[in-house]
C-alpha cells in the first residue's frame, strides 16, 4: 500500500508560506477559484477571518465558508523598505488592515497603488493575486 497523501495545499499561500497542513486548506482552493473566504460557525453565527476550523465558543467544527466580498474600510497601513528573507524581491510593499464590520482582514496593498493615494477610512476591496513566483495571496484594491 502506498503512503497516505498529505494535504499540503497551504504551502501555496503568500510569497513564502510557513505552514503546509491546516484543516482550513480549502482556503487555498477557494483562492484558486478567485475567492477570498472566511469561515462562519453554524452554531453561533460568528464570522472568522482569518478562517478557523474550530469555534472556540461552541467547540464545534461545523463551519460554512463565506466570501469576503464588498468593501472594507482601511484602518491602517505601512510601507516597508526592508523585508525578511525571501521577500526582498517584493520590496517596497505595503501591509494594511481592512475593517469589514463583522471581521477585519490583514493583507497587502495591491502593487501599483501609490502610497499617497491611501487614506485611512477609504473603501477598499480584497482580491486574489498571483505572485511572480506562482504563489497565491490576496491584495487590497481601491473600491
Amino acid at each position: 500500500m502506498g503512503k497516505k497523501e498529505i494535504d499540503d495545499r497551504f504551502k501555496k499561500f503568500g510569497t513564502v508560506s510557513f505552514t503546509a497542513t491546516t484543516r482550513v486548506n480549502d482556503f487555498i482552493t477557494n483562492l484558486e477559484s478567485g475567492k477570498v473566504t472566511g469561515t462562519q460557525c453554524n452554531g453561533c453565527g460568528i464570522k472568522f477571518f482569518p478562517p478557523r476550523a474550530d469555534c472556540h465558543k461552541c467547540l464545534t467544527t461545523d463551519m460554512t465558508w463565506f466570501d469576503v466580498d464588498g468593501n472594507g474600510k482601511l484602518i491602517t497601513y505601512s510601507t516597508l523598505k526592508y523585508g525578511p528573507q525571501g521577500f526582498e524581491g517584493d520590496l517596497p510593499y505595503s501591509i494594511a488592515v481592512l475593517d469589514y464590520g463583522d471581521y477585519k482582514v490583514f493583507g497587502r496593498i495591491a502593487d501599483g497603488i501609490d502610497v499617497d493615494e491611501l487614506k485611512i477610512g477609504m473603501e477598499m476591496t480584497a482580491a486574489v493575486n498571483t505572485l511572480p513566483n506562482g504563489q497565491l495571496n490576496y491584495v487590497f484594491k481601491k473600491a
Partner: peptide, 14 residues
C-alpha cells in the same frame, strides 16, 4: 502569525 500574516512579508517595525 506565521500562518496568516508572515506570508505577506511582515516585520516588527512595520
Amino acid at each position: 502569525d506565521i500562518q496568516w500574516e508572515s506570508p505577506f512579508g511582515t516585520m516588527m517595525p512595520a
